[in-house]
Design a protein around this nucleic acid. Structure first.
Lengths: 225, 225
DNA sequence: TTAATAGTGTCTTTGAGACATTATAAA
DNA sequence: TTTATAATGTCTCAAAGACACTATTAA
C-alpha cells in the first residue's frame, strides 16, 4: 500500500489554449500575469485543479471563467511535467485546446491583470513553458481541421461557405480555390445543414447560410494546400 | 503568489499502454497487482513520478523496467484525473503509449506479482480506470498506423513486406490485398530501406528484407480497409 | 452597364481497389 | 512436377486540382 511518504506531492494545474479567428488572423487568448512569477508577462489562462474536481471539469470551469461562454469545444492537448517548469514548486499542467468563434471581448480574470486576443504570429515570450504549449495547440488545431468538422467551431451559429473557407485559409496560412472548396464541403455528408436563408454581407451575389451539421469526422478529409 | 495552502496535493503517476503483435493478435502488457487496492487484478504497468524527474522520464524509466528494452517508441496518450479513480487518494495519471516488437518475455516488475502479454480482445476488467486507458491506447495506435510509419515499430530490425502487412491486418482486424499493400508501402518515399538480403522463412519465394527508413509520416496515408 | 462574389460544370491527373500474371523457392 | 509465397502489371473508379462559365446582387 501507499502512504503519504511514498510519493512526492505535486500541484496540478490546467492551462488553456483558446483559439479564434478574427481580423484575418488566428488568435490566442492570453492573460497578463498580475503576480510573480513572471509578473507582467503574457501567459495562457489557467489555474489550479480543485480538490474534489476532475481535471476535465477544471478546464471547463476555467474556460467559462475566461471567455464568459459555455458550450465551446474543449479537448485535452497534452500534459507538461518538467521538474523546473514552475520555478518554485513542482507543478504538472494538463493543457487543453478550445476553439471559439469571434467572441466580443475577453473577460478579465480574477487574478489576471488583463486578457487579450493576440495573433499567434505576434506572440513573443510567454511565462513558464507556455510558448511550447501554445505551439502544440496551434499545430493540433491545424491538423484537426483536415479530418474533422472543427473548422465550423470558429464560425458563428450561421455562416457562409466563404466564411468557412476563410477560416481554413487563415488557420492554415494558404489560399484555397473557392470553387473546389465549395464542392468539397457541400459534398461531405452531414457537415453543413442549409438554413434556407442567404446573406449578401460580403457584397456580390448573396450566399446561402449554413448551420453545423451532425458530422464530426470529415471523410474524405480536406487536405492542407 | 502561491503558498502550500493554495492548492491541494496530488500524487502523479504514469501508466503505460505497451502494445505488441504476437501469435496473430494485438497484445498489451499487463501486470497482476500484488498489493491493495485491486490486489490480484490485472492492471497497466506504471508507477509514481519521482520528485526530481520529469513525467516523460518517469514513463521511459518504467518502460525499461517493465520490458527490459530501451529505445522503444513512446508517446504521451492522455491524462486521467477523475477525483475518485484511485479509492484512497487523489491521483492524476499521465498515460503513455509504447509500441514494441515481439519481445522474448515480460520482466516481472518489483511490485507486480506477474507480467504477461494479453490479447486486447481477451482483456477483462482491469484495476482503476485502466480498461478505459487501454482502449484509448489501442484506438490511438490503430489511428496512427494510417498516417505514420509506426507499423514498423511492431517489427524487428529487419522484416519483409508480408510481415509488415500482417501487423496492419492484426492491428486493424482487416485483411489487405498483398499486391496493393506491397505497391503502396514500397512506393512511399523513405518508409522502407532495402537491405539487399532476402529470406524464405515463410515458405515460397524468398522475400526481400527491409529496415525502417527515415520517414515518420506516411503521405499519402494508408487507409483502414 | 460594371464589379464583385456565389455557385456549377468539365477536364486532367493521381491514387485506391480489384485482380491477372510472372518469379522463385521447397517438397 | 505441385504448392506456396513474392513481386509486377493492368484496368476501373473516385476524388483532388485547375479552371471556364453562369447566377445574383450592388453601385
Amino acid at each position: 500500500m501507499y502512504s503519504p511518504s511514498d510519493f512526492p506531492p505535486f500541484a496540478v494545474t490546467v492551462d488553456l489554449v483558446v483559439l479564434t479567428v478574427r481580423s484575418d488572423a488566428l488568435c490566442a487568448l492570453l492573460v497578463r500575469r498580475g503576480e510573480a512569477p513572471y509578473r507582467g508577462r503574457w501567459a495562457l489562462p489557467g489555474g489550479f485543479v480543485r480538490e474534489f474536481e476532475s481535471v476535465d471539469d477544471a478546464a471547463a470551469r476555467e474556460l467559462v471563467e475566461e471567455t464568459g461562454v459555455a458550450g465551446l469545444h474543449l479537448e485535452q492537448l497534452a500534459t507538461y511535467g518538467e521538474p523546473r517548469r514552475d520555478p518554485r514548486m513542482r507543478v504538472v499542467s494538463v493543457a487543453y485546446l478550445a476553439l471559439a468563434p469571434d467572441l466580443p471581448v475577453p473577460v478579465a480574470g480574477t487574478d489576471a491583470a488583463a486578457a487579450s486576443w493576440v495573433p499567434v504570429e505576434d506572440v513573443g515570450a510567454l511565462a513558464f513553458d507556455h510558448a511550447r504549449i501554445l505551439a502544440d495547440g496551434v499545430e493540433r488545431a491545424r491538423a484537426k481541421l483536415e479530418y474533422t468538422a472543427l473548422g465550423t467551431e470558429f464560425c458563428g451559429p450561421e455562416f457562409t461557405v466563404a466564411e468557412l473557407r476563410r477560416v481554413y485559409e487563415i488557420v492554415w496560412g494558404v489560399s484555397l480555390d473557392p470553387r473546389n472548396f465549395h464542392r468539397k464541403v457541400t459534398g461531405v455528408e452531414g457537415l453543413l445543414e442549409a438554413t434556407g436563408e442567404s446573406t449578401a454581407r460580403d457584397g456580390g451575389r448573396p450566399a446561402a447560410l449554413y448551420r453545423r451539421g451532425g458530422a464530426s469526422v470529415l471523410y474524405p478529409p480536406l487536405v492542407r494546400g
